[in-house]
Design a protein around this nucleic acid. Structure first.
Lengths: 236, 236
DNA sequence: GTCTATACCACGATAGAC
DNA sequence: GTCTATCGTGGTATAGAC
């Protein structure tokens, strides 16, 4: 229809591809717009024209991958819940719905492959304020759906506690996906051969399921009496 | 003795204090040396004179807090092991040794208080290469000692698996300490009142202990048979 | 609308005077 | 030890070509 938009899209795509590759290699701050535009073969000002700023470019890089990833997570959950026909899912099913979409993405080089997962891990803790607003927005739907699913799968966990445990879950997940740079530190001399995403997931799911189902902490005795129903499953 | 070193120390301290405060508020890249030196009341070139570069200043800010924190962790572990008189510690004791030192630090404004913990969380995933080398070095002793303690406390977990679970533990820990900015995302409309470090720890420890003790994942059937002794403690 | 050339200001770093 | 001056590079804004 409008031939010029085809060219524009190509330019935008080329910028996104170049930016993503360089961000993974060197991080956000270390990669300059001049490096990105040089690699993409476009003019420096093209970034500002198409994206407005470097920050907006970063957000666009994430949006392109994170959107489909989170849609896949929800689709996976939908399928599980359809199969269950109204019965609550098992905790490990919900955890796997959360994790396995990322696993699938890591196997597809066209969607960013492992590189994007590392990028994601590096950015969850990003202090920049524009990310503090952007990421919650991107994850909102996923969080709402999975929180509901977990609440049904783990009825003995009070909501307040569940929120925290999901928080811990996100931490363990993103941290471990960020690549084994930090793992080398723990493994010390002994090298860890399993750096494929699949074996990470196989190890991560039991850890998370156990953590989510952990016995509830003792209610604080000091201060006003606790109003939450702290149904202790079993003693530690 | 050398009066000029007294002044130098003051200048260094003033720079460190100003830098730490600004880093917490705005992150590393967003705070310029000009902001730091203005807040500290020193000349711009003083940073380069005393620390060599901005990167070295960042490392110095961390070293000042992280060194004592990790020494405290090891001291806590030493005390527990002395009490146990050769018997293996319980998993929850080891986890608490890891976590409670951070809790203590968060209560001491002179040592950085909660602000430094947030800074720590924001930096574990730092992609900058100088941090990739610096942080492992800072954590090396802690990791070696705690890995040994966990190996004794959890003899049924193979070493390979233990390394990964410690990795997940670090993730959940640092992520949750980084502040509840990301938590707001999970809690959605419902505000979480418990943002003091103490209640985080009370919730975090049971989660981690359960995760570390989780039943071992099923051995992969493909490829060579698994040589690990996969002693399943209990079914999920 | 799309793209280019170019100028602008803030940044980190450094040399040399005091 | 401290300061001023200056350099190269970074993100950004804009005027104008196509």
């Amino acid at each position: 229809m409008f031939p010029e938009t085809r060219f524009a899209a190509d330019t935008k795509e080329r910028i996104l591809d170049a930016a993503e590759a360089l961000f993974v290699e060197q991080g956000f701050v270390a990669t300059s717009l001049r490096m990105i535009t040089a690699k993409a073969g476009v003019n420096l000002a093209a970034v500002n024209y198409h994206f407005g700023s470097k920050d907006e470019l970063i957000k666009a890089v994430f949006e392109r991958r994170l959107g489909p990833l989170n849609k896949e997570r929800i689709a996976y959950l939908d399928r599980l819940e359809a199969q269950a026909k109204g019965k609550p899912l098992k905790p490990e099913q919900v955890v796997e719905a959360m994790v396995s979409a990322a696993l699938k993405l890591s196997r597809d080089p066209l969607k960013g492959g492992t590189a994007f997962l590392r990028l994601l891990g590096h950015t969850i803790a990003e202090p920049a304020d524009y990310m503090q607003r952007f990421l919650p927005e991107q994850y909102r739907e996923v969080v709402v759906r999975f929180k509901a699913a977990f609440a049904r799968a783990l009825p003995e966990i009070p909501e307040q506690e569940l929120v925290w445990r999901m928080h811990f879950m996100f931490g363990a997940m993103t941290y471990s996906m960020a690549g084994n740079d930090a793992l080398r530190l723990i493994a010390s001399c002994k090298l860890c051969e399993a750096d494929d995403a699949e074996s990470i997931v196989r190890r991560l799911v039991p850890f998370l399921v156990a953590g989510l189902q952990a016995p509830l902490p003792a209610a604080r005795t000091e201060g006003k009496p606790d109003t939450r129903r702290a149904t202790r499953k079993r003693a530690a």
